[in-house]
Simulated scan of single mutants.
Amino acid sequence: MTPLYYAVSAVLLGWHWVFEHVPGLSDGWTWVLSIVGLTVTIRAMLIPLFVKQIKSSRNMQLLQPKIKELQKKYAHDRERLTQEQMKLWKDTGTNPFASCLPLLAQMPVFFALFRTIDQAAKAPEDNLEKGVRGFFNVEYIESLQNAKIFGGRIADTFMNAEHLETRIIAILLVIVMCATQFLTQRQLMAKNMPADALNGPYAQQQKMLLYVLPPVFAVGGIFFPLGVLFYWVTSNFWTMGQQFYVIRRNPAPGTPAFKAKQDRDAAKGKDVAQDPAAVVDEIVKPKPRVQPKKQTRNQRKKGGSR
């Protein structure tokens, strides 16, 4: 984790340097805005992964009819079914695990930020050097320990808070965190999933996560410092806005969002988007085989002599 401590602390302290020069900002707001800046930086760097996630998720939805055909065809041969599914995903450039990439990429950063703030908060007053991580020094540790926002210390958690304000802010942040997580997932399922896909195993898994993850995050959230909760909430709002933009501009065919975009395009006099069936056929259409260039007899002889 040491390289991550340096990377996270470098970005965090870079934003801290920016905001500490803003007149009128307290230490608490300076640190909170620095954490928001860190979140925006990380999420901006993950945009390529998000684009890959959206493409694979969209293909997974569109390929559901083809997957069902394979399941019927090879219902009694699980090994062959797996091979055919893998071949279909490979031919269409679809990665069924791509939806986890942004989350997996964020987790090391999340834990590095958690450890950086947590160790700073636990450092004893007579030995603040114990809380140093990455580019942090004793001055930053002391500033972080005493930083408050609305009366709550951003380095404290709900469980170890000494002030009522800290517990209230922590509960509010946990509620917002769970609500944004739920609404983001519900937005995806309600607007950007075809009717056929909503009845498949992929959709059932998404429905389960829709109701299971918020309580899990709520239980875990009470053990996180306020600063980490601000990171999580900011990241959720980014995800919600990013997903809303993608669904509105490039929805999956056969979904309510796709129909809404067709209506908007028709109202503006634009060409209506392509039919869903044609999109699926285009995705699963095998790539044409590249024919070798014709060669003369002399060229073939030269090639053979080499």
Rank of each mutant, 00 (worst) to 15 (best):
K285Y: 01
V132D: 00
G134P: 04
Q119K: 11
V219C: 10
Q71Y: 04
Q185E: 02
R306A: 13
F150H: 05
E84V: 03
L4S: 09
V109T: 07
W31K: 03
L229C: 05
G134Y: 08
P276R: 09
V219R: 00
I35F: 09
Y74F: 15
L103N: 04
T39E: 03
V174R: 01
L25T: 06
R300M: 13
F237L: 15
A278H: 08
G24W: 03
V228E: 04
H76W: 10
T184E: 06
Q53E: 06
A123E: 01
N95L: 00
L226A: 10
T166N: 02
C178Q: 10
Y211E: 02
P292F: 00
D275W: 06
P292I: 07
T2L: 11
V246S: 10
K302M: 11
R264A: 15
F150W: 14
A267K: 15
P214H: 04
N95W: 02
T41Y: 01
S9K: 06
S56A: 14
P215F: 04
G14W: 13
V284E: 12
H16P: 00
L63G: 04
I171W: 06
A267S: 12
P194S: 08
A218P: 11
S305H: 08
L210S: 04
P124C: 03
V219M: 08
F50G: 09
E84G: 08
P201L: 03
E282H: 10
S56P: 06
N236Y: 08
A266E: 11
V176G: 11
W238E: 01
Q243V: 12
G134D: 10
A260K: 14
